[in-house]
C-alpha cells in the first residue's frame, strides 16, 4: 500500500495577505480573500481544528476576525510581533499536537521558511492554496462523526478547564471534584461505530492493545452475546467531551477477557481509564469470573501498562510483546469518588 500523507489535524493561519486582503496596520483587511471563509468553515465541519499565527497587535486583529464572523473558529490564536516559529510551538504545546499533524498557511515565503526551519515536519502552504485546502488529500477525513463536528468546542472547553486548573489552589483531586464530571456508560450500538473506529485509529498512548477492527467486525462485536462492548461519554461543567472511552470484554468459560481499553488522550488526566477498569472488575465479579486483560506493548502505550499494574493486575503469561494480566484482588475496584457514573441502558 502506498504511503498516504499523514492526516492534518490542525491548520494554522496567517492573517495579513492570507485570511484577508492587505495588511491591517496599513489600512487593509477590508475584505476576506476569496474562498477563505468557506475553507475555514469546511475544515471546521470536518473536525480539523484551526489557529492563527500573525504578526499584529492582538486586540485590533481579533476585532477584525470578529467583524468577519471568524473569531470563534480559531483556538488559542497567537498574535504578536514575535517569530512565527515560536507561535507555532505555543500552539503545538497548548493543543498537545505533533508537528506532522499541523499545516501552516502564509503568503510570505520568508515566514514559511522560518517555520519550516524550526519545525521541519510542519507542512507549509502558500496563501494561493488557501481556498483549496479542503480538497487536499491530507485534509480529507473518512467520515464526519458527531464528535468531529464538535471537536473545536471540546478543545475550547479543554482550554478553559486547563486555565481553571492552573489558577486552582487546592489538590488535583479537589480540582477534579469541582468539575462535576458525569460519565455515561452505554453498550456500543450501530450509531457509535464510526466514533468507535475513530477512537481505535486515533488513540495510541491510552490503548491497551492497539487492535483495530473493520466496521463489519465492530458491528459483529456489538451484537455478539459473547462480548460486552461499551462506550463512554463524559460531561462536566465546562462542556461535553463527547465519547471518550471504549471497553471490550470477551466472555470466556472462566474469565472475562479484556480485549480493548481505549481512552481519548484529550481526557488523559481525568480518571476515565481508572473508571472503565473499575467497571470491568465489577462486571467480572457480577458474573463470578476472573478478569483477565490482554496487553500488547507498543511504542506509545506504556502508560496503559502502568495503569493495569498499579490497579492490582499481575502478569500471568508473557509472549514477547503480548502479555496476559489478571486482576488479583478479591474486591472489585470502586469508581473514583470525583466521578458520577450513569448507565442509561439499565432498565431499558
Amino acid at each position: 500500500m502506498a504511503d498516504k500523507p499523514a492526516q492534518v489535524k490542525c491548520v494554522i493561519w496567517d492573517l495579513d495577505g492570507t485570511v484577508w486582503e492587505g495588511t491591517l496596520t496599513e489600512g487593509g483587511a477590508q475584505a476576506l480573500r476569496p474562498g477563505v471563509a468557506d475553507a475555514i468553515r469546511e475544515l471546521d465541519r470536518r473536525g480539523i481544528i484551526q489557529s492563527v499565527a500573525s504578526k499584529n497587535d492582538a486586540a485590533p486583529a481579533l476585532k477584525r476576525l470578529e467583524a468577519f464572523g471568524l473569531a470563534d473558529y480559531f483556538l488559542c490564536p497567537q498574535i504578536s510581533w514575535g517569530p512565527k516559529s515560536g507561535a507555532v510551538q505555543a500552539i503545538l504545546d497548548t493543543l498537545n499536537l505533533k508537528p506532522e499533524a499541523v499545516a501552516f498557511v502564509d503568503d510570505s515565503p520568508f515566514e514559511r521558511d522560518e517555520v519550516r526551519f524550526a519545525h521541519p515536519k510542519v507542512r507549509t502552504y502558500d496563501a494561493a492554496q488557501a481556498a483549496s485546502l479542503p480538497q487536499l488529500p491530507e485534509c480529507c477525513v473518512r467520515f464526519i462523526t458527531q464528535d468531529s463536528a464538535n471537536r473545536r468546542k471540546m478543545y475550547q472547553a479543554d482550554l478553559n478547564r486547563q486555565a481553571a486548573e492552573r489558577d486552582f489552589g487546592g489538590s488535583a483531586e479537589e480540582f477534579l471534584t469541582t468539575l462535576d464530571m458525569r460519565m455515561e456508560i452505554t453498550r456500543v450500538t450501530q450509531e457509535d461505530l464510526q466514533r468507535v473506529e475513530e477512537l481505535t485509529v486515533r488513540t495510541h498512548q491510552l490503548n491497551s492493545t492497539g487492535y483495530t477492527y473493520s466496521y463489519e467486525q465492530l458491528l459483529a462485536l456489538a451484537q455478539s452475546p459473547e462480548h460486552i462492548f461499551c462506550i463512554c461519554g463524559l460531561q462536566d461543567r465546562y462542556g461535553d467531551s463527547g465519547k471518550v472511552g471504549l471497553l471490550l470484554l470477551e466472555r470466556q468459560a472462566q474469565a472475562l477477557r479484556l480485549k480493548l481499553l481505549i481512552v481519548s488522550c484529550r481526557v488523559m488526566t481525568r480518571g476515565i481509564g481508572s473508571a472503565l477498569l473499575a467497571y470491568a472488575t465489577q462486571l467480572a465479579q457480577a458474573e463470578g469470573k476472573a478478569l483477565q486483560a490482554e496487553f500488547l506493548e507498543t511504542e506509545h502505550n506504556r502508560i496503559m501498562y502502568i495503569t493495569y499494574k498499579l490497579a492490582g493486575f499481575d502478569e500471568v503469561e508473557e509472549d514477547g510483546a503480548n502479555l496476559l494480566l489478571e486482576y488479583a484482588k478479591a474486591e472489585p475496584i470502586p469508581f473514583p469518588p470525583y466521578l458520577t457514573v450513569e448507565f442509561p441502558d439499565a432498565g431499558a
Binding site: 488535583a172 481509564g273 481508572s274 477498569l277 490497579a311
Partner: peptide
C-alpha cells in the same frame, strides 16, 4: 486511584 498511580510513576 490508578490515575494518581500513573502520575506518581
Amino acid at each position: 486511584t490508578s490515575l494518581f498511580a500513573l502520575q506518581i510513576v
